[in-house]
Amino acid sequence: MANSDRATESLKEYLTDLVVPHHRCNVNIISDHITMLHGNKSKKQLSRKKRAHKSATLTRKEYAALGLNTLPTRQMRYEQALPLHKLWRGYIREHLELQPGDQVPQLHEQRYEEFSRQLVKIDLHGAKLRVLQSKCPTLIGLAGICVMDTKNVLKLLGEDHRIRTVPKSECVFSMHVGNMEFTIFGQHLNMRPAERSVKKIKSFVEPFM
């Protein structure tokens, strides 16, 4: 009640100040005619505020329209991607818990399936990849550092400083980690890296020395 009384008095003072000074003596504000509203914002007000906040972010279509999901095909140099590859090598060793001298698990070993699942979940940004097989003959042999990994394609920056788009589903890729070589079937990479890292995946990777 004390808070309500203070609010009422403050409102009276505010309204009185709005009146011309020499007429203020005639102002008679009846407290019973004042209704003070209290409480939290309604769900409708909160949802409207939330929608306004969401509208400040870009949708996928807006993101694509601005060209934020594309890369210049001839303005990047291979040497510029080498630091990214160096970071990726440290990341992959940590992700797969590799130690110097480790060998690829064999099919009969207990940790083979888990190793294969973790291998498919990796983020390929910075990885050096080569196309071993493809439905499109012109893609076979293409190699480079992965500079973009989307749901359906990989973009590889070659030593000739050109970025080439390679569809995942039509290709089989080769990847080296130290003295180990892995074969990864692109059809099983058809999802965004963030989704792939948390999705349960069956073992379909065939690593070999």
Rank of each mutant, 00 (worst) to 15 (best):
N179R: 07
T70R: 08
K168G: 02
N28F: 02
V172T: 12
Q75G: 02
E79I: 04
L46G: 01
K49V: 13
H125P: 00
G141P: 01
P100Q: 02
K12W: 13
P83F: 12
S197F: 04
K155T: 02
C136H: 15
T59C: 02
D123P: 00
V27H: 05
T73V: 09
E94W: 11
S31Q: 11
Q118H: 14
Q99H: 12
L71I: 10
L129N: 02
V166W: 01
S203Y: 06
N40R: 14
L15C: 02
M180F: 06
E170K: 02
G67T: 04
P105I: 03
Q80Y: 12
C25D: 10
F182H: 14
N179W: 02
L46A: 08
E159C: 06
K44F: 14
R117P: 00
D5K: 06
R77H: 11
T8Y: 05
K44T: 06
Y14V: 13
I122G: 01
T8S: 05
S4Y: 07
S116I: 00
E113R: 05
V166G: 07
H95C: 01
N152Q: 08
F208H: 14
S31N: 14
P83C: 05
Q110P: 00
A64W: 01
T57A: 11
E181G: 04
K41M: 05
P193F: 09
H176A: 08
Q110K: 14
V153I: 10
H125F: 06
F185E: 11
L132E: 13
D149F: 06
L58A: 14
S116M: 01
Q45R: 03
L66D: 13
H53R: 05
E79Q: 14
N190Q: 11
Q103R: 12
S169V: 14
L87F: 08
R93K: 15
D160Y: 01
K200T: 13
P100M: 11
Y63N: 07
A2K: 15
V131F: 13
E62H: 08
Q110N: 11
Q75W: 05
T138E: 09
E159P: 00
